[in-house]
Simulated assay, not measured.
Amino acid sequence: MVKEPSGTFWLGPADSGTEVSMEDLEALPTDPEALRQKVTAMQKGGPVGEHDIALLPLASLIAELPAPADVRSAAFRALAELPGVQRLGAVEGGEELMIQGGKRESRLVVDPETSRVIRTSWLPTADGGLAGTNRGLFIKLTTGWTDELPR
């Protein structure tokens, strides 16, 4: 997916999250607990299904939004503290995390050298949506900075 430049991004789902600018992302706390509290306070709704309300915003910060490295680091540490999040171990290309919420299970594969999410079974999108796959399948992610506009 290529997102046209708009100057803002969604932090959390469109129906309960909030729009943020680059300046907002750069101003987020770099302490994991402070970041969790901040993104929770920025959400308009309650938990998403059986997941903690901070889950999708934190996942957005590590997987999709252009958050600064120290904010991403705090988001990883905050995500690891949420109920139902566990490290499954090494897989091809990185470390696999599982997020369990009732009957729903989501997985992320993180490259430990770059701290980038390279595969996921679901993805909060920049426009506040949620993309997902069937059980056992992954979305392959490629992220990076560019100075070229989308075609």
Rank of each mutant, 00 (worst) to 15 (best):
S121G: 05
P57A: 08
D24Q: 02
S106Q: 02
A78W: 06
L25H: 12
L58P: 08
R104L: 15
E50M: 12
L88P: 01
E148Y: 09
A90F: 08
M1V: 10
G129E: 07
P5S: 11
Q43R: 15
K140Q: 13
M42Q: 14
L82I: 02
V117T: 01
E148V: 08
G144T: 11
T146Q: 13
L79I: 01
A41H: 03
E4D: 08
A34S: 13
D147K: 09
S16Q: 13
T142N: 13
L79S: 12
E92W: 02
A27P: 05
P150E: 04
T18H: 10
G101D: 07
W10L: 10
E92F: 00
G45W: 14
K3C: 05
K44G: 15
A67D: 11
T40W: 03
V91W: 09
A34G: 04
A80N: 01
I53F: 04
L130C: 04
L25G: 13
G93W: 01
G49Y: 11
W145H: 07
G45S: 04
A131D: 11
L108T: 00
T8K: 11
A80V: 01
R36P: 11
P68T: 11
V39L: 08
D31P: 00
L82R: 03
L65F: 14
T125D: 04
G7A: 09
S121M: 00
R151C: 00
A78M: 12
E50G: 15
P150A: 03
E50A: 14
P32H: 12
L137I: 04
